[in-house]
Amino acid sequence: MQIFVKTLTGKTITLEVEPSDTIENVKAKIQDKEGIPPDQQRLIFAGKQLEDGRTLSDYNIQKESTLHLVLR
């Protein structure tokens, strides 16, 4: 499924993921596309910060959901 990741600069990254993918996994995909190390990434969905060990389905993230990427 496709999800979108919006950065603070207003750029939107499109990722191909599975509901069973972990947040860690998603961060690795963002690193592949954008070169941002996962340890600098914070992903936010519905106002919650997403934890590395959880999966997209844990957070009920469905196709075409938009996550927000904050760098630390």
Rank of each mutant, 00 (worst) to 15 (best):
H68K: 03
Y59I: 03
E24I: 09
E34S: 15
D32Q: 10
D58W: 14
F4E: 07
P37H: 06
P19F: 14
S20M: 15
E16C: 02
T12A: 07
L8D: 05
I23W: 01
I61M: 10
Q31D: 12
D32L: 13
P38K: 11
Q62E: 08
T66M: 14
L69G: 01
L56W: 01
Q62P: 09
G10P: 05
M1W: 12
A46H: 06
K63S: 05
L69I: 04
K33Y: 14
D52E: 08
A28G: 05
Q62S: 08
Q40P: 03
E64C: 02
S65T: 11
M1H: 15
N60W: 12
V17R: 00
K63M: 15
P19V: 14
T9D: 15
L8P: 12
P38A: 09
I44F: 08
F4N: 04
G47C: 03
D52A: 07
N25R: 09
R72V: 08
D39C: 03
Y59S: 08
D32Y: 11
E24D: 06
T12R: 05
Y59E: 05
T14R: 12
L15T: 01
Y59F: 11
G10W: 14
I23D: 00
Q31A: 04
S20H: 14
I61E: 01
K63H: 09
L15S: 00
T9M: 10
P38L: 14
Q40Y: 13
D52Q: 12
G47Y: 13
L15P: 00
K11D: 07
T66P: 03
Y59G: 01
I13V: 08
N60D: 11
K27Q: 03
E18A: 05
Q62T: 12
P37G: 05
I61W: 01
F45A: 04
N25W: 10
I36T: 06
L8K: 15
M1K: 03
V26R: 00
V5H: 00
K29L: 05
P37Q: 09
S65L: 08
T14N: 09
I13G: 01
G53A: 10
Q2F: 06
Q62D: 13
P37A: 13
K27L: 06
T7A: 07
L69K: 00
L71V: 05
R54K: 13
L67F: 14
T9E: 10
T12I: 04
G35M: 15
S65E: 12
S57C: 03
L43F: 15
P37C: 03
K63W: 10
T7N: 04
P19Y: 09
T12D: 08
V26Q: 00
L15C: 02
E51Y: 06
F45Q: 05
T22E: 13
P38I: 14
Q31S: 15
E34V: 06
L15Q: 01
L43N: 00
P19T: 10
S65I: 06
Q31P: 02
N60I: 11
I23R: 01
I30E: 00
G35A: 10
K48Q: 13
L15Y: 03
S20G: 04
E16P: 05
G10R: 05
L8H: 13
K27F: 04
T14H: 05
E24P: 07
D21N: 10
L43G: 00
E64G: 09
A46R: 09
S57V: 13
V5A: 04
R54M: 10
Q2G: 15
S57H: 10
V5P: 00
G10E: 12
T12V: 08
I23E: 01
D21Q: 04
G53D: 06
V70M: 07
E16W: 12
K29N: 09
S57K: 07
L67M: 04
E24K: 12
K11G: 07
G47F: 12
R54A: 14
K11P: 12
P37D: 10
G47H: 07
L71I: 11
Q31H: 08
L50D: 00
T12S: 10
Q62V: 05
E51S: 06
T14W: 14
E34Q: 09
L69D: 00
A28M: 05
Q41W: 04
G53E: 07
F45W: 08
T9V: 07
A28S: 15
T66W: 13
R72S: 08
K29A: 14
E64T: 12
E51I: 07
K27D: 00
T22W: 04
K27Y: 09
N25G: 15
M1R: 03
K11L: 14
D52R: 07
G10V: 04
V5D: 00
E51C: 03
D58A: 04
S57Y: 09
S57T: 04
V70Q: 05
T7D: 15
I61G: 01
T55S: 14
V70K: 10
E16A: 07
S20C: 02
A46P: 01
R54Y: 14
E24F: 08
R42I: 15
I61T: 02
D58E: 13
G35P: 07
P38D: 09
Y59R: 01
F45P: 00
L8V: 15
T55H: 09
R72Q: 15
E64V: 12
K63C: 03
L50S: 01
P38F: 08
E51L: 15
R42Y: 15
